[in-house]
Design a protein around this nucleic acid. Structure first.
Lengths: 157, 157
DNA sequence: CGGCATCCTTACCGATACTG
DNA sequence: CAGTATCGGTAAGGATGCCG
């Protein structure tokens, strides 16, 4: 049985339940990892535990603000562990919890697909852009000669 | 070799390349399916091809605006096929392309993880909330008695 | 029916400055 | 070093109305 059939059945099952974001695991997950940084940070930590500033260096272009915020959220959700060594200056090391490590599997699946099919997606975008260009060209070619107004039924009574 | 190690190595590999969103397949993918609706719509279409208004009914709380926009993006990326039957009123049917179907695998992995581990995430959130509550309680308990100011080195010269 | 255009309210997120 | 606090620009996305 193909994955997309299974997926479809799963979706059909959800329909019966309330699908509000607080109840639905998937919506919930997406609200977390759907932002710009969470996955990247998770990947970085999968490579090895890191200190705050090491993360700031290795995750390009992230601000301290977003780094802190994202780490805190991941910690709240139990995916990341925060270890403080109370020295002066302080050392704070972040690492994946077992739960965080267990998420690596699905994540890797996603990433593999992305890398394997990126070319196809790009090709599709080009085709779409080209189709749009051709279409608008044909519009301006036919141009003014009163584009026959569609005689339409008044289906709203 | 565990998935999170592989993931880590993969991340290390990215470091060498530019990691800007237009070049990185993963960033690119996330920009698309990281929103609130894309995955839901993909799931719905995995169950069976649907017309526009059927989708509007089955994907709860989505507005026409977002439904149109999300479908257009998915079409642009080659994941969804749009079939127009030019009748009055028009019928427009959406379905998954082969590429879209191939994405069902990774997606299912993600969803399985979400459903399997949602309880743990919720538990972690409760623990965290409880810890925060306890902490602020201890603060107000000690309260005023001049919380000993940390004699800190001035490491910024 | 299946959209698109417009307005308007949120929420995200970067820059900057300050602290233990 | 590892944050917190505040401000403000911008973009996501809901509500509404119109049109083929």
């Amino acid at each position: 049985m193909s994955a997309h059939r299974i997926l479809g059945d799963r979706f059909a099952g959800w329909q019966k339940l309330a699908l509000d974001s607080s109840q639905c695991p998937v919506r919930n997950l997406l609200d977390r990892i759907g932002d710009r940084w969470s996955l990247l940070i998770l990947c970085a930590l999968a490579a090895e535990p890191r200190r705050f500033s090491a993360l700031a260096r290795d995750v390009p272009d992230i601000s301290k603000r977003m780094l802190t915020q994202t780490l805190r959220t991941l910690e709240t959700d139990g995916l990341v562990h925060r270890e403080v060594e109370p020295s002066i200056p302080p050392k704070v090391t972040y690492s994946l919890t077992p739960l965080g490590q267990s998420f690596a599997g699905p994540m890797l699946g996603l990433i593999d697909w992305a890398e394997a099919n990126f070319a196809q997606v790009q090709a599709a975008r080009l085709r779409f852009a080209e189709a749009a260009r051709t279409y608008s060209a044909s519009l301006s070619a036919i141009a003014s000669p009163a584009a026959k107004p569609l005689a339409h039924a008044h289906w709203k009574l």
